[in-house]
Amino acid sequence: MNQTRPGPVQYAVLALLATVFLYPIWWAVSSSLKPAAEIISDPLSIGALTLDNYRAMFADVPIGTGFANTALVLVVRGAMTMFFCPLAGYAFAKYDFPGKNLLFGVVLLTLMLPTLVLIIPLLLEMSALGWVNTYQALILPGSIDAFSIFWMRQTIAAIPDELIDAGRVDGAGEFGIFAKVVLPVIRPGLAALAVLTTMNVYNDFVWPVVAVNDTSHQTLQVVLATLAQNVTGNRIGADFATVWGELLAAGSIALLPLLVIFVLLQRHFINGILAGSVKG
């Protein structure tokens, strides 16, 4: 098949877009390595490099605690999402049972509810269970969400029924068919779900700031949001430039995990995104 190769104009447009998207990241990282005063006085220059902002940030802000709490929530909640949501999607895609369409419609209806609408009911539920200021409150709500179920249902629905029937003929059990037949086929979709789940959990701010109000359970995003308050509270006479220097240092460190995950899984992520749009 003849394919048109991108020309110089297309490459120029792509280079321009890449510059627009990458420049803020480059500026934030480079500015975090500058003396705090220069960030305000000459924000576009590249002067002497220093790690003072990072040293001060680690001394003033419990960013290590935020990373540890976020990692714990991400691992446990991500494992629950990656285990239960594909199973639910498989049931909706390949099984017939009474009320299936109605139940799936109810699941889809929950996607229309804004997060803020659910905050008060969830907080009341956590309070009734005695889970406020606990890891359970950070992990369990939203660990099995409607979008992930819908995503897995659409991905698994594209698998031919004959492939599953062949597994049954070979004597495999239902869970064995799911583990040995379905999962290898939907790996791109699982990789895309893993990236999306990681981004959602890592960037979540509204629910952690409501469910937890003690510093020992604060996630990274809550720590970053209260960074200015922590800096000015821990250091007498801290000025605006100092806050900006430490904020950029913390933001640069917080950026690294997501950047690494996306670079490692970008091929699977793109394949998973495109899988549902290709009919074979």
Rank of each mutant, 00 (worst) to 15 (best):
P8C: 06
V9S: 11
Q10T: 07
L14C: 07
L16Y: 08
F21V: 13
F21I: 10
A28G: 09
L33K: 04
I39Y: 01
D42Q: 14
P43N: 14
G47H: 15
Y54S: 10
T65V: 12
F67P: 07
T70N: 11
V75K: 05
M80I: 08
T81C: 00
T81N: 07
A88P: 04
K94N: 12
F97Y: 06
L103V: 15
F104D: 09
V107N: 02
P114W: 01
P114S: 03
V117F: 07
L123V: 13
T134C: 12
G142K: 01
A146S: 15
F147P: 06
F147C: 11
F147K: 13
I156N: 00
I164N: 02
I164R: 01
D165N: 09
A166G: 10
V169R: 14
G173L: 12
F175M: 13
F175E: 08
F175T: 13
L183F: 03
G189T: 00
L190R: 01
A194V: 03
L196R: 04
T198E: 07
N200G: 10
N203S: 08
D204Q: 14
V206M: 15
V206A: 14
W207S: 10
V209W: 05
A211E: 14
V212Q: 02
Q221R: 14
A225Y: 02
A225M: 09
L227M: 11
Q229Y: 13
N230D: 13
N230Q: 15
G233Q: 10
G245Q: 01
G251W: 04
G251C: 09
S252K: 00
V260S: 10
V263S: 10
F269P: 03
